[in-house]
Design a protein around this nucleic acid. Structure first.
Length: 588
RNA sequence: GCCCCCAUAGCUCAGUGGAUAGAGCGUCGGCCUCCGGAGCCGAAGACCUGCGUUCGAGUCGCAGUGGGGGUACCA
């Protein structure tokens, strides 16, 4: 927000250092001063001093850094827009003029509203593929992470300035579907799904697994169905189409509840045929080895690359009976995406267990001459486990179903609303309960680094206190509640605050001003946790301000500034919640 | 065997090579004459080990230890 001033000062420091023959590094790194109560920007001269030491001068680095900082401070004086300048422990600290800084920050937010924090267009298209549910299976809490992470990564990158294509990739064919169809034909023929479609489909899948585990001889019946699918037997295809749609309808309901949307829906059934064509090409190009009928079609990656150590190993691209694998379809899907759009990056939000798989697929594509393969990027995230590091598995019935979690979370939220705000109408209570329940459920999935395992436990998921979404929503509600009590027109131009700002006001302005940078950082690193952490700190700064600073019952000049600060805080909180796919309620 | 990830407070997690390592939960103690107490303020409490790189390492490198995952026809 002070980019212009910062640049001017940087130029001034550089000119001075060249003049004094001080070896400044190429880029001067600025950061904020890490102390409360005052704010500004800071840079250090350790690198310059170390540079002198290396070039043979006899200097003690920290001491020399301090000398340089002092001389630079003396040289630049106190630039306009700043209150004071100091040299401390090798750092040069420039403290912003608090009134000027507050004015600029608050009026920027009031002007840009919903767009505050939005980055300029980057002129680049990226695709984020996420969720990837398997049809004919349950949708459990483990699947929630990809769905929510992918959704929020899409929101953040879009807000940061990218043209984002949100893609889903439905696992609508494969051994798991064939098994399900086998069981359905044999034991449930003619049955229709109950109201809770996804659960019913999942229950049948679990039943299928049990039957096959109990009697392995039945596998031959399953293989027969797979063969019939492969030659597109009309009866099997028709049954597949009908049952597949049941699952997709069920998923769409869940996505609507989660407020998640997609621009493009891919499925592995549509990638099956083109995948097999790529495999043929690979065989013709001597990249893949066809060992059928005694073995599968494989790509010996390490051998082709002449690697001594195991790295990419061997990728199986087609089963020995000629049926497709995920790898077959992934080869084709990557190509379909690139041909269909103009992608600078093609991102796959998929759990970490598939890292090797993707490295293999993309390396195979590279060997096949597809020079765009380096645009494919695996955004790997760790699993959601149950306490005791137990992995959720559809087969074992250890899963926590998403429907159950949502129901429990919202009904628990409803209890709390009843207690905290009994005067609301029933409809309002329901709305609040949904917003709070869903927010509480999403936040912990987003507030961990992608490489960290999320341990799901009911108690923590349903705790609405502390560092959680409801805390942030509550700050939004309180801000809103102050603003509702006044009819002062905030669109009038504001002036520099006339009063001495309280530490909590300064802290709040400082937090608000950070949103644009946080958005860019989160987008560059594909890390939602920067935004969850920021949102929490912002809410905390607001709550602290709320407690310390009266807004309505104070002298008009102060009140007018604080009202605008409250509106700026409210807007910024709303924008961060929006980025996180979490509702910002007006009351709760 | 080979590859990847993780290790920070009792528990769950933050931490852009830089100044005093931050939160939440839990524990203990304060705060509703005041815009909503789903809140605010305070206390105690932590970087797995060793060697290196660097003026400076929780952060980078190497080697250990402990945990998790992957590793040819599952996805």
């Amino acid at each position: 927000m002070f980019d212009f001033e910062r640049q001017a000062i940087t130029d001034q420091i550089k000119a001075y250092c060249i003049d004094q023959a001080i070896p400044l590094p190429e880029t001067l790194k600025w950061s904020s001063i890490p102390f409360n109560g005052e704010w500004g920007i800071s840079t250090s001269f350790f690198q310059a001093a170390a540079g002198e030491a290396r070039s043979g001068k006899k200097v003690i680095v920290p001491q020399r850094a301090q000398e340089i900082a002092e001389s630079v401070a003396a040289q630049i004086g106190t630039p306009t827009g700043f209150e004071r300048v100091e040299a401390v422990k090798g750092y040069l600290n420039l403290y912003f003029s608090s009134g000027e800084f507050s004015l600029r920050t608050v009026s920027t937010v009031l002007g840009e509203k919903l767009d505050f924090g939005r980055g300029g267009s980057k002129g680049e298209q990226i695709m984020v593929e996420f969720s990837q549910p398997n049809t004919h299976k349950a949708f459990h809490v483990g699947h929630l992470r990809s769905a929510i992470l992918g959704d929020v990564i899409s929101r953040i990158t879009e807000f940061a300035g990218y043209d984002v294509v949100r893609a889903n990739y439905i696992g609508d064919i494969g051994l798991h579907v064939i098994k399900w169809l086998w069981n359905y034909r044999k034991h449930h023929s003619g049955e229709k799904p109950k109201a809770d479609t996804t659960r019913w489909m999942g229950d049948l899948y679990a039943e299928t697994s049990r039957r096959l585990a109990d009697d392995p001889d039945l596998e031959s019946e399953v293989r027969e169905i797979y063969a019939r699918w492969d030659r597109q037997d009309p009866e099997i295809v028709a049954l597949w189409e009908e049952t597949r749609q049941w699952s997709i309808d069920g998923f769409n309901e869940l996505y609507a509840t989660l407020d998640i949307r997609f621009d493009r829906l891919y499925s592995n059934s549509e990638a099956e045929k083109p995948g097999k064509e790529i495999v043929d090409q690979l065989i013709a190009a001597n990249i893949a080895v066809d060992e059928r009928p005694d073995g599968p079609v494989i790509v010996r990656l390490d051998e082709l690359l002449g690697l001594d150590k195991e790295k990419y190993r061997v990728l199986v691209v087609l089963r020995s009976d000629g049926t497709a694998l995920y790898s077959t379809e992934d080869l084709a899907l990557a190509k379909i995406k690139i041909n269909e759009y103009n992608l600078a990056k093609s991102i796959y939000v998929v759990d970490v267990r598939q890292s090797l798989h993707f490295q293999q697929v993309w390396k195979t594509l590279e060997l096949a001459g597809y020079e765009w393969s380096d645009r494919c990027h695996h955004l790997a995230y760790e699993l959601v486990n149950l306490p005791g590091n137990v992995t959720m598995a559809s087969r074992d019935g250890t899963v926590v179903l998403l429907e159950d979690l949502i129901r429990e979370s919202t009904s628990r939220a409803l209890e709390v609303v009843e207690e905290k705000n009994p005067t609301l109408t029933d409809e309002e209570k329901q709305t609040v309960a949904r917003a709070v329940g869903m927010g509480a459920l999403k936040y912990p999935m987003l507030a961990r680094d992608n490489t960290k395992i999320v341990t799901f436990d009911w108690e923590a998921a349903l705790d609405f206190n502390g560092q959680a979404a409801p805390y942030i929503q509550y700050a939004h509600v309180r801000a809103n509640s102050i603003l509702k009590r006044t009819d002062i027109d905030l669109s009038q131009p504001m002036t520099v605050p006339s009063h001495q700002l309280e530490p909590s006001e300064i802290q709040l302005v400082e937090l608000i001003s950070r949103l644009p940078n946080e958005v860019q950082r989160a987008a560059e690193e594909f890390k939602t946790l920067h935004i969850t952490n920021y949102a929490y700190e912002l809410a905390k700064a607001f709550n602290s301000f709320y407690r310390q600073c009266p807004v309505l019952q104070i002298a008009p000049e102060v009140r007018d500034f604080r009202l605008r600060l409250v509106e700026a805080a409210r807007q910024t909180i709303a924008n961060t919640l929006n980025l996180l796919g979490i509702e910002a309620p007006e009351k709760m």
